[in-house]
Nucleic acid binder design. Sequence first.
DNA 1: AACAAATATGGAAACGTTTCCAAATTTAAA
DNA 2: TTTAAATTTGGAAACGTTTCCATATTTGTT
Lengths: 341, 341
Amino acid sequence: MSRKITIKDVAKHAGVGIGTVSRAINGNPNISTSTKEKILESIKILGYTPNNVAQSMRSQRYKNIAFFADISNPIFAQIAKESQIELDKHGYTLSLCNIGEKDIGNKISSFLEGRKSDGIILSIPKEDDFELNRSLANIKVPIVTINRDVPILPAGVVTDYYFSVNEAIDYLLSLGHRNIALIGGDKKIRPTREGISAYKDAFLSNGVKLNNNYIKNGKLSSESGEALFNELLPDIQKGELTAILCLNNQMFYGVLRGMRKAKLKYPDDISLITFEDSELMELLDPPLTVIHRPIDEMGKSIVNTLINYIDNPETYGKLEPVVIPTNFIIRESCKPVSIKK
Amino acid sequence: MSRKITIKDVAKHAGVGIGTVSRAINGNPNISTSTKEKILESIKILGYTPNNVAQSMRSQRYKNIAFFADISNPIFAQIAKESQIELDKHGYTLSLCNIGEKDIGNKISSFLEGRKSDGIILSIPKEDDFELNRSLANIKVPIVTINRDVPILPAGVVTDYYFSVNEAIDYLLSLGHRNIALIGGDKKIRPTREGISAYKDAFLSNGVKLNNNYIKNGKLSSESGEALFNELLPDIQKGELTAILCLNNQMFYGVLRGMRKAKLKYPDDISLITFEDSELMELLDPPLTVIHRPIDEMGKSIVNTLINYIDNPETYGKLEPVVIPTNFIIRESCKPVSIKK
DNA sequence: AACAAATATGGAAACGTTTCCAAATTTAAA
DNA sequence: TTTAAATTTGGAAACGTTTCCATATTTGTT
C-alpha cells in the first residue's frame, strides 16, 4: 500500500508552500484565485484528502457531535438518524452514546475528556437532577437538549406539547368526553408541564370542569404506564372515565398492555390518543389517533441550533427554544360519547 | 479556564521523562512498578487524561468504529445501541452513519478517508452488488457484516435463519397447515437463502409436498411486503393458503396493512409468524407468534468479532461466521387447521 | 568484585495539519 | 516613477502524543 498523500506532497506538486495549500483547502481568503486553482488541480491529481485527525489536533476543532440519549427508545434512534444526516451535510460526524438513568453527567464528562467533540445533543430523563446539572455546568462545549428545560443550559429544541395537547383535548371534548385522563411523566419535565397546562386550559376554554385526579404522572416506561392505567381502571369500568391521552409512547405500551389484561377494547370501552406516530400505530386494530411530530425536522433543528452555537459562541444561552409543531392525525381510536349523565 | 494538563506536566510532576509517562499509561511492560505507581499518583493529583486525538495522530489507532446501516429500521438502532455499549467496555467509540440504497461503497470510502476508524460494522441491503463489493475490497480496515455473506469480505455475524425457519415451519406443519407462504427479501441474501432452504427441508422432513409458488421474494420494505401479500390474497380467500411466515419485519408491516385492507383477521383467516420481536408485537391483538433474536448478544458478537480482527489481523478472513441462535415465541397468531381436504 | 545481560529511562523525532509572522509580490496613489 | 498599502506567499512552530534509540541502572553470574 502506497504512503498516504500529505499536504507536503501537494505543496511540492503544485510548487507552493504548505501554508498556501492549507489556505486553499480551508477557503481562506488570503490566496489568489490562480494559485488556488493550481493547488486544487494538484489535489485532484494526487487524490489527496486531509487527515482529519491532524486537522483536529492542530485546530482544536473536531467536526464531531456526541449524541447522548437512550436510543433503545426508537424515537431517539430516529432523531439520531435524522441528526446524522443533517450533520453530514455540514461535514460533521456523530458519535453515539447510550445513557442510562444514572451517572449521566460523569459519563458525558469522561467521554469529552478523552474523545473530542465540538458539541452535544442531549436527552435526559429528568430536568431537576442536581448532580447532573452540576456536571453539565462544567462542560465547555455547547449542549442542545431535546424536549427538556434544564436550568443551567440554554434553550434546546422542543416539541410543541402545549399546542398538541390542547388540540387533542379539544377534539376529545368535542366528541362529548367529559372525563379525560392525561398520562405523562414527572411533572417537572417540560413535556408533562406543558401538557398539563394545555390540558387544563383546554377544559377551561371549553367551560368543562376538570378532575385533577385524572392527571397521572409516572416514569417514562411501559411498566409505569401500565400501573397508572390500573389506577384508572375502576373509573373506566364504571363508565366515568371515557378517554385517555398519553404523552409518551413507552407509557402508552403499558396502557395497551393494561387494557389487554383487563379485556378492554378501544374505542368502545375507552377512547385513546397517544403522542408519537409510527408505522405500527396505523396498523394496530383499530388504527390509533395520534399526535405526530416530524422527526426529520427535529433532527435538522437540533443540528442547526447546535452548529450555530459552535460557530457563534456569543449566542449561546441567548436564544429562545426552537419549538417544533406537530400534526394531529385522527384515525379510529376515539369515538363520540353518546349518553351524558 | 486553566490550560489542559499534558503528558509533560505529568512528567515534570513525577520527576520522570515523557516516554516513561507514556509507558505508564499504555501498560508497556518496560517500566518498574515503583515508577509506574509514582506516575499514576501524579496523574491522579493533576487530573490528567490523555488527549485521544494526539494519541491517534501518532499511533494511527483511533479507538473508533463506524456503524453503517439504515438505522431508521429499529432493529439496527437497537444493534447500534448494543454495539456501542460493548464497544465502550473496550474503550472504543461508535460513529453512526446512515446509508441509503445507493452509493454505499463511496460513502464508506470517503468517510474513512477523512475520519479515522479502526473498523466497520456494516449492514447492506444486497450481497451481490458488484460496484459495492469492489469498493469494499479496497477498504483497508476490518469489516464485520450483519446477516450478509459478502463474497469479498470475511465472515460476519449472522442470525440462525436456518434453524429459526425450520422450527417455525415445523410448528405450522404440526398445526396441520399444508400450504404455507414464505415472504422474504431477495433470494441472493443470506437470510432469504437460508430461510428458503430451511423451509424446503422442513417440508421434506415432514413428508409434506411443498408449493414453490408460495415462496415470495421482494424488497425489504413494507410496500413490497404488501404487494407480495396481495399476490397471495386469492389463495388465502379460497382457503388454500392458511399460513404466512415473514422473514423481515418491514415486510411484515406490509402484510399487516394488506390484511387490514382485505378485511382479513389473523389467526382466523390466516396464521401468521414473523421474524423479529418487539414490545408491540406482544401488544398487537391477538399477540404475535414471533422468532425472537437476542439483540444484545448480536451486538456483543459483532463487536468482539471486529475487535478480534483489529487486534489479530492475521485472523481476518479465516474465521467462520458467528451464528446467533434465536427463540421461537409462541403467542396467539397461529391456530390449528381443522379441516383437511 | 568484575562483567555481561537484562531491565529501565530520557528525550528527540515523527505523526500531518493550522497558525502565525516575516518576507515577497502586486496594486494603488501621488 | 516612487512610495505606501494591500495582498499573497513560504515555512517554522505548535498541537500532544508514541516510538525509537541511546544511555543509565539493576540484576545475575562467575
